[in-house]
Design a protein around this nucleic acid. Structure first.
Lengths: 183, 183
DNA sequence: CTGTTCATGTAAGAAGTTACATGATTTG
DNA sequence: CAAATCATGTAACTTCTTACATGAACAG
C-alpha cells in the first residue's frame, strides 16, 4: 500500500465525513482545514481520478437535472488506507513559512523605524486574520459542533490560539524595539 | 522592477549580510532561517544565475587552490531591490501546514485511544524539535549575537516560543481528551 | 589515507496555484 | 432576467525537494 499524497489525505477524510463530490470537498476544506491543509480544484479533481484508478474510491454519475455531477465514496481499500494513515506515527509533515519573520531577520539592514513599521504591518495582517477566524469561521463551527468535543472545532480553536500567540509576540516585539530606540 | 522570487529574497539578504557564495548562503539558511524560510541547493544555484542575468548580483571567479568557487555580491540594483522588498508592506506570504492537526481534525473517525496516541506522538515530535532548537541553534545564535538586539536571535526566539506554544497546546488537548474518556 | 567539509551544479519529479473554459440551476 | 451558486475540468506555470554527479582540500 503506497503513501497517500497530501491532497489524497484530505480528500479521503472529507469523503468519509460525508462530502460527496469535488465541489463539496473544496467547500469543506475552505471552511475548516484551509489554514493548515489547503487544496485547490486544480488538485482535487485530478486526484479524485487517480484515487479511483488506484481503487481507493468509486464514483458514480450523479447528474442533477442537466447539471453534470459525479459522486464519490470510499472503497474498503480506501477506508483501510485512510485508517492506516490516521493511525500512523510517521513523522508528521510540518511546514511554517512567514515572510514577516524573514524581513525581521534582515532587520539589521534597515533603520529601526522601518523595522518597527514592518512589525506593525505584520501584526495588523495577523490581527485581520484572527478577526476573520472569530467572526466568520468560529460561529459556523460552533453551530455545527456536537455537544461533546468536536474535532473540527478543536482544530479551529488551535488556529485562533496560534494567531493570538503570533499577534501577541509581534506586539511585544514592537514594544521592545520601541524601548531600545529611545533609552 | 519585478517581484523577487521567494528564494531570491533570502539570497539577496544573506549576500548583504556577508555570505559570499551559494554554499555559504545554504549554511546560513540551515542555521537560521530554515524553519520559516528554507532553500535547497537545487534552488540556490539556479537562482543565483537568474539574479545575475537580471543584474541584481555580480559574480567573480574565486577558485581556492584547485577548488572551484564563485563569489557573488549585490549590485546597486540588487541593493535597491532588497531594500524595496524589506520596506514593502504587501501582504506577507504566510503558510502553515500541519499533518498532526489534520489527523486530529479527522479524530471522529477513530476511537479515542487512537486519537490520544496520535496527539502524544505529535507532541513528542514537537518536543524533539524544541530540544533541537534549544541545544543546537540557540547557543550558536547567542554566541554570534551583538550586545544590543540581534535580529537573527530574535527570530530564533520566535521559533522557540512558537514550539513552546504548540507543545503546550497538544499537552492541554491530551489532558482534555483523557478527562472526557473517563468522566 | 580516510572521512569530513567545501563547493557547484543538473535532472526528474512532486505539489501547488492561477487562470481559463464551460454551462446548468437556483435565488432574488 | 440577472447574479450567485453549483459543478467539473484543463493548461501553464511556479516552486521546491531529492537524488545524482563531480571533485578538491583539510583534519585526524
Amino acid at each position: 500500500m503506497q503513501e497517500l499524497t497530501p491532497t489524497a489525505k484530505v480528500i479521503l477524510g472529507c469523503l468519509r465525513l460525508g462530502a460527496r463530490n469535488g465541489y463539496e470537498i473544496k467547500g469543506a476544506v475552505e471552511l475548516s482545514t484551509r489554514f493548515f491543509w489547503g487544496a485547490s480544484f486544480g488538485q482535487i479533481y485530478p486526484e479524485l481520478r487517480r484515487l479511483e484508478d488506484a481503487g481507493l474510491v468509486t464514483s458514480a454519475d450523479d447528474a442533477h437535472g442537466g447539471r453534470n455531477r459525479r459522486s464519490y465514496e470510499l472503497t474498503p481499500r480506501g477506508e483501510r488506507a485512510l485508517d492506516a494513515w490516521l493511525k500512523s506515527t510517521d513523522e508528521p509533515l510540518f511546514a511554517y513559512r512567514d515572510e514577516g519573520l524573514l524581513k525581521l531577520f534582515f532587520g539589521g539592514l534597515l533603520e529601526r523605524d522601518a523595522v518597527l513599521a514592518g512589525a506593525r504591518a505584520t501584526r495588523q495582517w495577523f490581527e485581520a486574520a484572527l478577526a476573520f477566524f472569530r467572526t466568520e469561521l468560529e460561529p459556523r463551527a460552533r453551530a455545527g459542533a456536537g455537544e461533546r468535543d468536536d474535532f473540527p472545532l478543536l482544530t479551529l480553536e488551535f488556529g485562533i490560539a496560534l494567531l493570538e500567540f503570533i499577534v501577541g509576540w509581534w506586539a511585544r516585539t514592537e514594544a521592545r524595539l520601541d524601548e531600545e530606540a529611545a533609552p
